[in-house]
Amino acid sequence: MNPLIHLRHSLHQHPEIAGEETETAQRILEFFKPLQADEVIENLGGTGLAFIFKGKNPGKRLLFRSELDALPIEEKGDPSYRSTISGKGHLCGHDGHMAILCGLGEKLSQQRPDSGEVVLLFQPAEETGEGAKRVLEDPKFDKIRPDFAFALHNLPGFPLHQVITRKGTFAAGSTGMTLQFIGKTSHAAHPEDGRNPAAAISQLILALPEIRKSILGYCLATVIHVQIGSLAFGTSAGIGSLSLTLRAFDQENLEQLIEEVEKKAKQLAKAENLDINIQFQESFAVSKNDPAAAKLAEQAFESLDLEVLEKADPFRWSEDFGLFSQSCPAYLFGLGAGENCPQLHEPTYDFPDELIETGVGIFDRIIRNQSEGKS
């Protein structure tokens, strides 16, 4: 069996979720030992790894990112290398993305770039939107701060090996937002003696469409969870919470949406004499493609004679790579995983092994074109 496919199957069998990727990082480290990278950075932003390959001459530093983490979902498919960890599975293809970067490491080991540096980054905690922030905030990241950053994601529903691109925004930014309204519990027969958050929460839900309309550009506010009081029929609730997912195609629009929801929530809390506590979870920045980075990638697609689909609208889902695109010139693209491939995060999904060679080829061509001055 091809060593990269064997590695991918091994990673698939031993999934680790966000923040727990210790053994996964160790497997990657073992794979890279014989490849003799010029520098290795461990424990980057947690369990992250970076492998640096230096060219013969000075030049641009290119970073290529893959993800270490799996999902807290039980695998229902039946490959021979099915997950051995109950309730966890590589059902987004991060095992395949890692294999692609490992294959790129093999290429760089055999032939360094003519100029510049290449960084292969294995990022933790992509699924929770925490990993990129931790990596970028880690003091060790200064050693690998890139001139350009690249990443791909496999995309079921598109023909196998087709490249899916987009100028500008590739994928939406999003954040989870929980608004907790704190009042006072009372007897259900005397609700006037308490402060029930039901009115504030319901009014906020009803106000969301108007808030969305007030923002120029695509945005979405999705109610994902509501909880008020408890199932005690003699009690008027004194506490409640509303959880939303907010998303937009433009970072400024996303920030404006957050601000407007927060403003309305505080107004309603004040009117109902409630305290309010606001928390954010799983925040993802907008993934925006830089024109200069796009040119490098597009040259690679063309020279490899790949079928390219220019998507009319951004994807509504979010990717943690978006934070890299907010901090340096970056480029994220999709690679078709097959029109009949189960969707990402579905229990029967499995990364197509055929994509490994395609992904390695694209990334390698980007490096060679840049280092040879073909940009």
Rank of each mutant, 00 (worst) to 15 (best):
G238H: 13
P79K: 07
D364N: 15
S83F: 02
Y81W: 12
D290F: 08
S283M: 14
L335A: 04
S115I: 10
P58A: 01
S202E: 02
G336H: 08
F249T: 08
C219S: 14
Q110S: 15
N57H: 13
A70I: 00
L49T: 10
H225V: 00
C219D: 06
L91D: 10
S10G: 04
L179F: 06
D142P: 05
L62R: 06
L246R: 02
G361L: 03
C341F: 01
L62C: 01
L296N: 14
D138T: 03
L254E: 03
S66W: 01
L108N: 11
S287I: 07
Y218I: 00
L244W: 03
F321Y: 08
P329L: 05
R316F: 12
R166M: 04
F280V: 11
F122T: 10
G168E: 07
I144T: 01
K56N: 11
F53G: 06
C328S: 10
P159Y: 04
K107P: 13
S303T: 15
D38N: 09
E310K: 15
F31W: 11
G45R: 06
H345E: 05
R212P: 00
A198I: 08
S83E: 01
L254K: 14
L108E: 12
N43R: 03
A198K: 13
L160F: 02
L7W: 00
G322I: 08
L104F: 12
A269F: 05
E354M: 01
P347Q: 05
P58T: 04
L120C: 10
F315K: 04
L120M: 11
G176L: 04
F351S: 05
Y218Q: 04
E319A: 03
I205E: 01
L208G: 05
P156W: 03
K54R: 12
I17L: 02
L355T: 13
Q203W: 08
Y331S: 07
G336W: 06
L231W: 02
I367Q: 04
A297M: 11
H153M: 03
K88V: 14
L332T: 06
S375E: 15
C219R: 07
K60I: 01
C341S: 13
K213W: 02
L254A: 11
P156G: 02
V261C: 13
D313G: 08
A132L: 07
R368G: 04
I276G: 10
G234F: 03
F301P: 03
A312M: 09
L244P: 09
L246G: 07
D250E: 15
H14M: 02
Q13N: 06
A99G: 13
K56Q: 13
A269G: 11
L296Q: 13
A188D: 07
H6P: 00
E259N: 14
H345Q: 10
K213A: 13
Q256Y: 08
V163M: 11
R212W: 00
H161F: 02
Y331V: 02
Q326D: 00
P291V: 07
I182L: 14
P79E: 06
L179C: 05
G77W: 03
